[in-house]
Design a protein around this nucleic acid. Structure first.
Lengths: 345, 345
DNA sequence: CTGTTAGCGCTTTCAT
DNA sequence: ATGAAAGCGCTAACAG
């Protein structure tokens, strides 16, 4: 063993008095090693604090043991839960997770096209990212399996929820409560940003249309501050809606904030419904559409693992259920209860 | 080039009409290649969609280009922001991030002691984890540089904030407002859990002691539900405090939730202050102690990178500042304004 | 069940 | 400035 170096497999072999192949087999639990010998090898390895170099074995097995996760951000409730879940599932299967954040589309495209992934990961999970057709095509040329999480891409493996249907029923719920003036706050897709449109607005629109009710859409930047802006403008409009459907809980948080500051009673004066069922939604007792975020990540990870194991190339597409969680921010419209928004004292 | 395989460096060499050494030098921008030749090589590589195999080069350079991040969880505001920031900084330096979540101490110990890190990453960043002395010692034997993020470990490299002083001034602020009955809600360290105690309670205690005021500590599980439990029990006690200092914003969220449900006015009847300045705190207009979470991650990443570059082994310990952010959940105690908690209508 | 022999795809002296 | 050759540490046939 070279003086200052880490022990290598040959050191273990020498110490255990066997050949390297035997050590190799023993270390990774491969069959064909006598129990007694295996123990001796493991013992020797332990004494030397030896651990196998993945780089060296990857080189020959042509498997990296790593999967890349491409995601817009990490520091957001939804994404952090997805990644946490993917990471846990992958880790349980002995795989490492490599995370790449691509908030901006140009970074993403530059990255994908330079394809540092090629040969350096066994698979990639793309979360919520709006890859263009050409980028997807590019990705397929690498021959590395990919699954899309929280985005339905036709012809690709994916796991996602049915946002449109979920939004349809959230809207129907409000409609059934008697609301007729329901605003939808949609997060704008800033130019150069890289996530998939959610299609929730489509569900809202078709529910409204079915009831012959006039839709009302406000576009706002993502996040609570966008929601705050949108609600502020709604509050300043000629007629204030009786209900607000926020495309995400984050938006709803901002909505709740300006409502609270303006002393507008929720749900007496205005009903609010969100989407995601984030921690914050639970704490605020916000009515919302829950999607199984953790399961989304877990299913994606498992799909990747299956893809390794089986050679069949059949398309795998999993749709996970959503459910509406009724809490304390929705109720019948104020026309039926009290005619005006409560005046600030 | 083997039929179904990815191109290798020799393929690029052949196409560019140069030797492998030249391709190698050109690909990684090493000196000693004519500009004209370099361009030819890069062009050939592009045409072949060639990318260097990190595994192969790691094997010879003995650098993996990966750093491990050991962290309790990922799906929490604080941790997700730290990791996002570490990941971004590392990525900018061309390094990959490997994330390992260890909520439970036993997983952690098992993991560290089996040391799969050894030889497989260039460095490790330990976030908020409560490694025992023996585990730290074990870690040092690997000779892989480690930095501790959000945990001051004497004799080790770290970047952290001064929780004790920050908590001292948050408490002093409440005291200066005139509060005398201030409860501190401390998150309990469940047996088998693996994070560092925050020492915020110490700051609270010493501020209270300086003023000869009776401290009052409630222990609760982490997260909003723990905060809700704690506040509930406080509300059911013989004398309800005029102010509550929550060890984390998460706890404060739970506190706010039960206060809202109980129609207790904040800050008129009870003042609430949190710690972290999370997104949720901002949305709730919660007074809190802000710590520079993103900077914590960034500084840790940079420290790791420095450690690679310089050989000097001097201890690097960086303390980042906190600041108290006064919003709308704190005010003078109710004794000075209105004598009782508002009754639910 | 165990050992021997070839590489895996790159980087690095060391020549030229 | 460029090329040839020698490995980096491991696994995978293939023998025995």
């Amino acid at each position: 063993m070279k003086a200052d170096d880490q022990p290598r497999m040959s050191d273990v072999a020498a110490r255990a008095g066997v050949s390297m192949s035997t050590v190799s087999r023993a270390m990774r639990g491969a069959p064909g090693v006598a129990v007694e010998v295996r123990e001796r090898v493991l013992l020797a390895a332990g004494e030397l604090s030896y651990v196998v170099s993945r780089d060296a074995s990857s080189l020959v097995t042509r498997k990296t043991g790593r999967v890349a996760v491409l995601i817009p951000f990490l520091d957001t409730w939804f994404f952090s839960v997805v990644v946490a879940s993917i990471n846990r599932s992958l880790h349980a299967a002995g795989l490492d997770t490599l995370i790449y954040q691509f908030g901006h589309a140009k970074d993403l495209e530059k990255y994908i096209c330079s394809l540092p992934l090629r040969r350096n990961v066994d698979a990639v999970i793309v979360v919520s990212l709006n890859l263009g057709d050409k980028v997807i095509a590019e990705l397929k040329t690498t021959a590395i399996p990919s699954v899309f999480c929280s985005a339905k891409i036709s012809g690709q493996h994916w796991v996602a929820v049915d946002n449109e249907t979920a939004a349809f029923s959230a809207t129907s719920y409000l409609l059934n409560l008697g609301h007729r003036d329901i605003a939808f706050i949609q997060t704008q897709e800033p130019a150069g940003f890289s996530w998939k449109p959610l299609h929730r607005v489509d569900g809202y629109l078709s529910a409204m249309e079915d009831t012959k009710t006039e839709p009302r859409i406000v576009i706002a930047p993502a996040g609570p501050s966008g929601g705050a802006d949108a609600m502020s403008s709604l509050l300043g409009s000629a007629s204030v809606p009786t209900a607000v459907f926020a495309e995400t809980d984050d938006i709803a948080l901002g909505v709740m904030q300006v409502l609270r500051r303006s002393r507008v009673q929720v749900p007496e004066a205005i009903s609010v419904i969100g989407f995601d069922d984030s921690d914050a939604a639970r704490t605020l007792d916000l009515t919302t559409v829950a999607q199984p975020v953790s399961e989304l990540g877990e299913a994606s990870a498992h799909m990747v693992i299956e893809l390794f194991d089986s050679e069949e190339t059949s398309l795998r597409q999993i749709e996970l259920p959503t459910k509406i969680v009724i809490r304390e921010t929705t109720g019948t419209p104020r026309n039926y209860l009290n005619l005006n928004i409560e005046q600030p004292s």
